[in-house]
Design a protein around this nucleic acid. Structure first.
Lengths: 169, 169
DNA sequence: CAAGAATGCATGAAAATTCATGAAAGAAAA
DNA sequence: TTTTCTTTCATGAATTTTCATGCATTCTTG
């Protein structure tokens, strides 16, 4: 269903140091504590990858690839971005963005126009077609987000997002 | 310095709906609220990418590529993982992991041995060389993590990690 | 104004990644 | 036990991504 990362699940959540004299009836899961299990950067990557995987299936179902979705979603609120700005926003490096934009421009989703006041700049915007394609996904994204956040009490939702903003500097 | 994603920074943190009758003295940053600025999956991706970028320079400085670091870090605590398990842990899909393991095996960092009780399984472990290469990075990783987390009060650190674990399911 | 430096984006070749599929081993069914 | 199904990992071809660099434009400075 999802992209990947949802295969085995076996045992997880090994208890801390429980009772010492336990005869350990099962020898199957040797699960050690694991460096990564408590390492912030890993937890971030895992949370991002796993939480996004669900939504990415919706993106694919709408005929878009994930990088395209990201670009369209950024442009939906901020039109006329410079390529460099958009690259920063989308977390892509510039050559990658340029090449993805080429494809999307050919597909009629985005539009590049050169800034008359500085002809080095290429300002990127959505075409009507691009907007039409991204709009339904924006709704789905909000719905999916609400669903994911529904696991947390409202106060925690704000706190969580604040953490993430702080981590992104 | 870092991999990417540290270019312009201009303004960020647009205030919510502040005062309506603001004459908006500056017209420079047209920064709209921005869908992505409050979208959980984007905040996760951005936090992960930006926070990791710093550390990734250390990885590169130690002659490892990021995927290799991730694999070694997972194996550091959990030896003898099946390829599929390791793929799940590292958030890579299986073919990608297999190919990266090929390179790392040739480089003498990891070792694949086939499980005698089920010869389909390839159990992956660190070689002494692999362990020697990853160990200093594990220390650096802990240090870097501590530095990142130092921005937050101790109670929040636990809460943040708990959030992330919950998000990763 | 004419270098020279800097900035913004594009591009090409090499490398990595993806997707579908292959092959080997084990499990289940007949 | 022989088929058939399933699981696990590897692989190949096509696509993407990366890294360094090129080209055009603007900015700086003498």
């Amino acid at each position: 269903m999802t992209t990947d990362a949802d295969q085995n699940d076996a045992a997880r959540l090994a208890p801390e140091a429980d009772a010492a004299p336990l005869p350990a009836p099962e020898q199957e899961p040797p699960l050690s504590p694991g460096f990564t299990d408590d390492y912030l950067l890993y937890l971030l990557a895992a949370a991002s990858a796993r939480a996004s995987a669900e939504f990415h299936t919706l993106v694919a179902a709408h005929g878009l690839r994930v990088p395209e979705w990201r670009i369209l979603a950024c442009l939906a609120s901020r039109e006329g971005l410079k390529v460099t700005e958009l690259a920063h926003q989308t977390l892509f490096d510039q050559p990658r963005l340029t090449k993805t934009l080429n494809v999307m421009e050919r597909a009629g989703l985005v539009l590049r126009r050169s800034d008359p006041s500085d002809r080095r700049l290429a300002l990127v915007s959505l075409t009507p077609e691009g907007r039409a394609r991204v709009e339904p996904l924006l709704s789905l994204a909000r719905g999916h987000e609400a669903q994911v956040l529904s696991r947390f009490p409202a106060a925690d939702r704000r706190r969580l997002k604040a953490f993430l903003v702080a981590l992104a500097r």
